[in-house]
């Protein structure tokens, strides 16, 4: 809202041609983007410069070497099996965790009786460092993909669960009562009141859970695995190959950035009603 007002204000009184105004707006957007990129570029430049000058290249590699390594990995196809496995683990772990978190958080949020019984247990399990479960999951689910899916899912689950749980519990009682008087049955209460009211919390939980799913998967692969980016990074660091380590991390970073971008799209779509597109009229 403010943005629009500001944009309206800094338009000169002379009323420029619409194309010129649009061009200026586009330039402003690109300027902003460049500003965001600047610290990152500076960091990479410093890294390149410092490597071999201040710190031994063996310890930190350097950006050009990392890029070269990435190119090799993709050109030779060496990385694809790892990518494919880790990608599946991330997607399954994340989706299972989010799904279970929404269902569990919703059920407990809606039913005081259920939450009275189960909340202490969930609370207790929440306190367990999930990473400590990694070896156990390998025993339970094997050395393959599913032990990593389980680890990622359980890390995601608790975050989403707590967000949805508190979201559903904080729904305004008066809105619920109003809907009931209007004639809503339980199912309609869910779709028209509880779920939309909890949606900001659901989205928040989903965003927060993205890095946790990555941690779960990578820790699982570090612990024991046959394929995957975690294994790749682990092996690279065990063989004094810092370029390989940073190449793996760069790929993970790309995963997280993509997921964040998608989550941002979802957020804008679901929470349209929270970001007004124009100023509120001042008349009655």
């Amino acid at each position: 809202m403010n943005e629009i007002v500001e944009r309206a204000l800094d338009r000169p009184a002379g009323k420029p041609a619409p194309e010129r105004a649009a061009l200026r707006a586009r330039l402003a957007v690109w300027g902003q983007r460049l500003l965001v990129l600047a610290p990152g570029i500076a960091l990479i430049a410093f890294w390149q410069w410092a490597s071999g000058r201040i710190i031994k290249e063996l310890y930190v590699s350097k950006p050009t070497a990392v890029v070269e390594r990435l190119y090799e990995l993709f050109a030779s196809g060496e990385i694809y099996p790892h990518l494919w496995i880790t990608g599946q683990e991330l997607v399954f772990g994340y989706l299972i965790g989010v799904g279970a978190g929404i269902v569990g958080g919703y059920a407990l949020g809606r039913s005081p009786r259920l939450s009275a019984i189960f909340e202490p247990y969930v609370m207790a399990f929440y306190g367990i460092p999930k990473i400590a479960l990694a070896p156990l999951f390998i025993i339970w689910f094997g050395i393959g993909m599913w032990s990593k899916v389980a680890l990622a899912a359980i890390m995601v689950f608790f975050l989403v669960f707590y967000n949805v749980y508190s979201g559903v519990k904080s729904v305004d009682r008066e809105l619920v009562n109003l809907a009931k008087v209007m004639g809503a049955n339980e199912r309609q209460l869910t779709t028209h009141v509880y779920l939309p009211a909890a949606s900001p919390y659901v989205v928040l939980g989903m965003r927060m859970a993205i890095p946790y799913s990555v941690i779960g998967v990578i820790v699982g692969e570090f612990t024991s695995s046959m394929q995957g980016l975690g294994l790749f990074i682990h092996e690279a660091s065990a063989t004094y190959d810092p370029a390989g380590v940073f190449a793996g991390i760069t790929i993970l970073l790309a995963f997280v950035i993509t997921a964040n971008f998608l989550a941002g799209r979802l957020e804008r779509r679901l929470l349209r009603w929270r970001t007004p597109m124009g100023a509120a009229p001042t008349d009655i």
Binding site: D172, E174, L175, N177, L178, A179, K180, V181, M182, G183, A184, N185, Q188, H192, V193, P196, A197, S199, W273, R274
Partner: peptide, 30 residues
């Protein structure tokens, strides 16, 4: 719950995730 009445609360309490038209439509939909 008495569904034969209509309730206008102290605060307007429109459902914030529904547009004005969707808000007004809701009781009919339900």
């Amino acid at each position: 719950v008495n569904r034969e009445v209509g309730f206008v609360p102290q605060q307007a309490q429109l459902f914030p995730w529904k547009t004005l038209a969707e808000n007004i439509e809701l009781p009919l939909l339900l």
